[in-house]
Design a protein around this nucleic acid. Sequence first.
RNA 1: GCUCCCAUCGUCUAGUGGUCAGGACAUUUGGUUUUCAACUAAAAAACAGGGGUUCAAUUCUCCUUGGGAGUACCA
Length: 526
Amino acid sequence: MDVRVRFAPSPTGQIHIGNIRTAIFNWLYARHNNGKFLIRVEDTDRERSTQEAIDILFSELKWIGLNYDETPIYQSKQIEHHREQAEKLLDNKHAYKFAKGEGDEAVLFNIPWDDNTLKNISTSGQIEISIHPDIPVKICKQGLFYASISNKGKPIPTEACLAGFKDLSIIDSNNQCLFQINDEIQPILNGEKTCEIKNGQRLRFLRREVYFDDLIKGRLSKPLDSMKDFVIVRGNGSPVFHLANVCDDILQNITHIIRGDDHIENTYRHTLIFQAIDAELPSFTHIPMITNECGKPYSKRDGDAFLSDLRDMGYLPEAILNYLTLLGWSPDDDTEKMGQKELISRFTLDRVQNSPAKMDQKKLLNLNGQYMEEIPPEEFSQHVTEIISDQSWGNSVDPDYLDDVAKLMQSRTKTYNQVQDWSYFFTDNLNFDEKITNRHLQKPGIKEAFSLLVTSFSDLTFELNHIESCILDVTESIGVKPGKLNLPLRIALTGTNVGAGIYEIILILGKDKVIRRLDYAINNLT
RNA sequence: GCUCCCAUCGUCUAGUGGUCAGGACAUUUGGUUUUCAACUAAAAAACAGGGGUUCAAUUCUCCUUGGGAGUACCA
């Protein structure tokens, strides 16, 4: 069977790092297996879903390079279909109607008493749990209501589905059986009878579990007595996530569901719904979540939680794709830098980690630098042009001049955002740091040296070796060690104490700018 | 409270019933360089704790601790 996976975000704003990583794993799995990667927009939350968010979703997918197959479907357009499925579930007793308080009747999924109707339910043996004798046990179609006992001996109201208590006996303090569910089960299941048993001390029953096989975590199971019948259609008629999600996965013929492990609890429920609808169960894979730099789950309050934040910081989509894939997955050797093609050919789910991963921007930055290095110079220069055109100093620059600057700077640029610090190539308005200038320029001899340089430069043919020897001559003539003039010179010409080689910078800046800036420094800074 | 998931250097990870527990980022120290970056050589750095199985446990198992999730007429 062909692999069909899906990415099913709810469009309520920006795309989360964790979400996009889930999308990436789905996409890689599909591409690796020559399958289909589908999009489903889960826009049933009308209050929070916006068209703007939907637009963002598609543009972000495109930006990071996740192409999808087939026409995306919108969950909001499937509501009728969901309701039909709910009707069917009602018809074959897998669901029932129930009103909480005085509201409208909602539809609840009926976790089945009879385990022959559903697969994926196993028996794990007879167990006993203690209950608080002061609180009567109430048993009805909706489930079992009782009180467990806290550490301090106080009652804790607890409720669970009926199906969790196969062969239930309620035992009192004299070890007498007060109640046996098998005697009463039919009328209870039909909703015709409610039992209330006082003075119970222990519940003895056959524990049953719902299970599924996770591709990376193995078999996962959960006791039915820790679950409740749950709402699948609200009192107002709108389908709930659990139903909608399952129906749409069936509709889209999804074969593999790959999602965050925060969905494990949902999957137990979904497993039941799939089978109640009589659909084939897809295979499930739960991938670990990504946490922020503090090790906490990403929330919207964290800075840099969104894909767009990373883009705004100047990271390249290739680097993000590469880095995010490495968060929770590794190939079978030490390779780290992998492009789209290589990731696709090497990606398999069995090499996915099963513990959560912390986001480390420093590593992303390093990887981004590796990708920046490989950008063809023309492309780099082109992109730089776009970036600096937003700057007051960068909107009308000579293309050839910019090419030279870009060529000089590319190897030391780790993100495109660093380009914003290049203003000194284009404007004489330098951002001097008073501390630095005072320290390096207000020293004896600097003024004289700069004056000498202005004189020598004005007659010089601007070539790299001439510039270098000229500066060395001046340095020597004022009795300073070779190279000691470079830093003051750099500061006077660029305003900063770091950057590319100063001789190259001087060459690119050209005679006019250099002399102008030296004059300024002589008069104002030394 | 109950249920579920998780646990190797600071971080991402590799790995195995017997390994000097490997790599990358970050860190520190040298080299190179006119500064920075790059490059280069090196250093420091981990199997959460406690039982059990075993000749042997980081690896299998149990418990504890810690982290996370669910326990909604949110998705």
